[in-house]
């Protein structure tokens, strides 16, 4: 469904993403993990059209969407959420979601009605008339999700929807995301919360310093020494072994 080939992106002298390749197949939940500053959000921004890559291509459902504007990509059925939530603060929850619904629906009444339906999917139907600016962080994350869903995407890019949530809130959100997948929306997500990555994803990519260092089923990926090194620092495995040897 999504094919990313040889994406390179530099900011001045900094290589944010180097020759990134990945593919997401329909009906799956695929995750992208990696330490802070690995380039995950940059890669998301390139895929969704917010940043232009220096080279490489992004193919979505057989269409080349490389370098196309974000609104056009969204209309094709690929929508992203933001890591730092971006609610339309002075609008109500219902009006926020309706903005997403308007991508497919011209009528105001129909869009507002559709917004109420989408709110149910993320358990927000009790907060429809609340102002988005008054929501808790968990509420805002859900709203971000609902707005994206209202555009009726085929592929949903979720940038750290779990970040900043407590254990209970994460636990409540997991089935919501699975439900979205089961309704026929393919999901590609960036996540730091490993509990979520492990329990949700069918396949995982690991990005470190802009380079894809591992991929596979989540269980196998987290055992890979390269991945452990990426999280604990360069040469960490060797140092640990040395210290263990010295103490013996």
């Amino acid at each position: 469904m999504l094919e990313v080939c040889g994406i390179n992106k530099t900011f001045g002298g900094l290589k944010a993403v180097t020759d990134a390749n990945l593919s997401v197949s329909e009906g799956k939940i695929v995750s992208l993990i990696g330490p802070n500053g690995a380039g995950k959000t940059t890669l998301f921004a390139v895929i969704s059209g917010f940043l232009k890559s220096d080279s490489g291509s992004v193919i979505f459902n057989g269409t080349d969407i490389t370098g196309k504007p974000p609104h056009w990509i969204c209309q094709q059925g690929l929508v992203r959420t933001f890591q730092v939530v971006q609610p339309f603060a002075s609008l109500t929850v219902r009006e926020n979601i309706a903005v997403g619904a308007h991508t497919r629906i011209a009528g105001r009444k129909q869009a507002l009605a559709r917004a109420a339906d989408v709110a149910k999917l993320v358990d927000m139907d009790g907060m429809l008339e609340q102002s988005a600016g008054d929501l808790t962080i968990a509420g805002r994350k859900r709203l971000e999700l609902a707005r994206a869903l209202a555009t009726e995407p085929k592929l949903l890019l979720l940038d750290e929807v779990m970040a900043g949530l407590n254990a209970t809130e994460i636990h409540e959100l997991l089935p919501v995301i699975r439900g979205i997948r089961d309704s026929g929306v393919t999901i590609f997500l960036i996540e730091h919360v490993m509990q979520a990555v492990m329990s949700l994803s069918d396949y995982t990519y690991v990005l470190n310093q802009g380079v894809m260092i591992a991929e596979g089923e989540p269980k196998n990926v987290t055992r890979s020494p390269e991945v452990i090194e990426a999280y604990l620092g360069h040469g960490a495995a060797a140092r640990i072994a040395k210290m263990a040897g010295g103490n013996a």
Binding site: H71, C74, V79, F88, L91, V99, R108
Partner: peptide, 24 residues
Amino acid sequence: RSRFGAQLVAVRENEDAAKALGIN
């Protein structure tokens, strides 16, 4: 009360979020 108005207000509130939701 129109789609145009809703999209205009969305652009006012947050242009990036509006673009991500398919608004030109």
